Amino acid sequence: MLLPHAQTLAQARSYIAALADQALKLDASSAYERVLLELDRVHGDECPALDTEDLTDDRAILLACARSAIQELEDYGVDALSVELILAMLVDAHDLDIG
């Protein structure tokens, strides 16, 4: 994995972890964690560390940033279907969080 790919993956993981930490419901937090697990699985568990310090508390911004970083992973060779599955899981987690 090249550095730009690792940086994008680290950003996606960090935003999702922040969403999990800030979730209002336990089910939503667990759903965000499943998104992280799927993201890690797609990358063969070759995953950079999380860094959630200094991230915004605005969950809408975190969601938008996570979505953007996940979509960008396609540019680094991640299968488009895997990206769409992860994005769908992210939306489902968010729906649990706000619903």
Rank of each mutant, 00 (worst) to 15 (best):
E74D: 06
E33A: 14
L9D: 00
H5G: 01
D57N: 09
R34L: 13
A49W: 11
Q11Y: 07
I70A: 08
E53P: 00
H5D: 10
E38K: 11
H43N: 15
A49Q: 15
A88H: 04
Q7L: 13
D27N: 14
L87Y: 09
A6V: 12
S14V: 15
A12P: 04
L36Q: 08
R13Y: 02
A23H: 01
C47A: 14
G77C: 04
C65W: 00
G44I: 11
D54P: 01
L36D: 04
T56F: 11
I61L: 12
L39W: 02
I98L: 03
P48G: 12
A80M: 02
E33F: 05
V83M: 04
P4C: 04
S14G: 13
A60Q: 12
E72V: 07
S82Y: 01
A20N: 03
R67D: 09
L37S: 07
L85R: 01
A6K: 15
L90R: 02
L87V: 14
D92V: 05
A69Y: 07
L39N: 00
E38I: 07
D51E: 09
A66P: 01
M89H: 08
I98Y: 02
H43E: 12
S68D: 12
L90S: 05
L90I: 06
D54Q: 15
A69I: 15
